[in-house]
């Protein structure tokens, strides 16, 4: 099963359960008492997921390592490489 089919299956199952509850195919005292919540639950879930996604991405963007040290080290090594290569008889074009 591809990841696409996996997603389709899970979303399909959740949708069927939700549709059965909303259309009163499954009816209990709980569904009667919480009908509006159940009706809007997909939108609520989507909204909550959106908040989670945005928070995660923003948090990871702000905490993305800047690697300043690595850049400084590389600059030093570039100079070392140039000096060493010249000594080995390599001619730089510019």
């Amino acid at each position: 099963m591809t990841k696409f089919m996996e997603w389709l299956t899970v979303i399909g199952c959740v949708f069927c359960i939700w549709a059965a509850l909303v259309t009163n195919k499954i009816e209990t005292s709980f569904t009667r008492d919480h009908y509006t919540s159940i009706l809007f639950s997909p939108i609520i879930a989507l909204g909550l997921f959106g908040v989670y996604a945005v928070t995660t991405v923003l948090y990871k963007t702000f905490t993305f390592n800047n690697c300043e040290e690595a850049a400084v080290q590389l600059q030093k090594e570039i100079e070392m490489a140039k000096d060493d290569l010249k000594q080995l008889g390599f001619n730089f074009k510019n």
Partner: peptide, 24 residues
């Protein structure tokens, strides 16, 4: 791990793309 020389926009796109990839 990390990156050097990327501005906020580039990091955001990279993290967003990675989030989507990991999710899907």
């Amino acid at each position: 791990g990390g990156v050097h020389g990327w501005d906020f926009k580039r990091k955001l796109i990279s993290r967003g793309a990675n989030f989507l990839t990991q999710l899907l």
